[in-house]
Structure formats: C-alpha cells, structure tokens
C-alpha cells in the first residue's frame, strides 16, 4: 500500500478538491467498470468504488502531480481491492503464487483468428464478422472474469480502460515488461476462453477438439 495514512491529514486546497471532484465525476463510469471486473460482481463493486474515493479524498494532499491523477486513483482502487476483497474471494487458482508469479514460461499464443480459419469450419460470408456478431457481451464478460487475477487486471486496464502500458505499470506497481508479458498471456487465455464458449454454444461447430488443441 503506497497511500500513507496520517492521523490528521493536512487539508488540500479547495481548488484541488474541486479538481478531484470534477475528475472523479468524469471517470466514475470507468472506475465502476474496472471495479465490476476486478470483483467479478461477487464482492460489491459499489463498495469498492466508494471505499476508493474515501481514500482518494483522505490522501489528496499526497497527490504529487495532477497529470497523474487518473493512474493514482486506479492504483488506490487496485490496492483497496486487494485489501478488502481478495481475502473474501480467495479461490485456489488465485492463490498467492499464481498472483505473484504468472511469469512462467509462456505457452504459444492462442489466436482466435487462426481457429476461425480452419478448413473444416463452414461459414456464410465473413467468418470473423459473423463470429463477433454472434458472441454476446455476456460471453465477453465471462471470458474476462475467468482470467486469473494477475492477468485480468492487466487486460481490464488495457482493453476496457484503454490505459497505456506505462499507466498500467504505475497503477499495478509492475515493470512495463511484466505488463507486456501478462497482457500477451492474458489475451491469449481470453481468446481461448471465447473459442471454448463458441464451441460450447454452437457458434462454431466442427469435429471435437483434438488432444493437441487442448
């Protein structure tokens, strides 16, 4: 936790408060979107956002630079999630080792595009477009939620929030290289999950997956 807690926090100037209020109002939907995916709707996303904003207000005096406000707020969101929700949500696959060391050897990238172009699949028209049209928003959300924490946060910040790698690194307190590798692995897992749902729900059909495809 990088946010220092003091007994009597110095009061930030009113101008800074107004700035904060304005910025929070402008980014509230994005904070909520990130909170929903961090918590997978299991731990209350609304509580997470509210707790985050309380901490933001309490620590406003420690904000170094207004330009980094957005990243700072997301860092507080992430840290608050870890301290408030993670223990309650702990699952075997999210254990500490998988959170801290997802950097194991990277398996080959899984590309949906290549699967969609396998010769046994029959499509009318444009297979990529048809595939995307048939996938529902809830399939997307399910695939994101199925990612282990360490990959999910990076994918959410990159693909839903549109953060740069540098901003993600700052928000999650990681090296940019780590962001890069987790993002690549996270997206690969995500595409694999979408492919699996597409097969389960019959969006694509074909022979049963072979062993080496698993």
């Amino acid at each position: 936790m990088t946010v220092p807690m003091t007994e009597n926090p110095p009061q930030p100037d009113p101008d800074l408060r107004a700035f904060c209020e304005q910025e929070i109002a402008a980014m509230l939907d994005r904070l909520y979107a990130a909170a929903l995916r961090l918590t997978k709707g299991r731990c209350d996303a609304e509580d997470l956002v509210a707790d985050t904003i309380v901490k933001v207000l309490d620590n406003l005096h420690s904000l170094q630079d207004r330009a980094s406000f957005r990243g700072w707020v997301f860092r507080i969101l992430h840290n608050t999630f870890i301290s408030n929700c993670r223990t309650r949500l702990a699952r075997p696959e999210d254990n500490v080792s998988s959170l801290h060391t997802p950097e194991g050897e990277a398996p080959e990238q899984f590309w949906l595009f290549d699967r969609l172009h396998q010769p046994f699949l029959l499509w009318w028209g444009n297979q990529e477009q048809e595939f995307l049209d048939r996938l529902m928003a809830e399939d997307m959300v399910r695939a994101i939620d199925a990612l282990p924490d360490a990959f999910r946060m990076v994918v959410v910040l990159a693909d839903i929030e549109g953060f740069s790698y540098r901003e993600i690194a700052d928000a999650l307190e990681l090296e940019v290289g780590t962001v890069r590798s987790r993002l690549s692995r996270g997206r690969s897992l995500l595409q694999k999950a979408l492919w699996d749902y597409a097969r389960e729900t019959g969006i694509v059909s074909g022979p049963a997956p072979s062993r080496d495809e698993r």
């Binding site: 939907d29 979107a33 956002v49 509210a50 959300v141």
Partner: peptide, 18 residues
C-alpha cells in the same frame, strides 16, 4: 467488443453515495 462489453452504466445508488 471487449471494451463495449466492459462498460456499464453507473447505478444511481453509487452516484448518490459519491
């Protein structure tokens, strides 16, 4: 599509709370 799926309207209860 991922970005669209991830966005959701902020509930009024949260807006009021903030």
């Amino acid at each position: 599509r991922l970005q669209d799926a991830g966005r959701q309207e902020v509930p009024d209860t949260l807006k009021d709370r903030i």
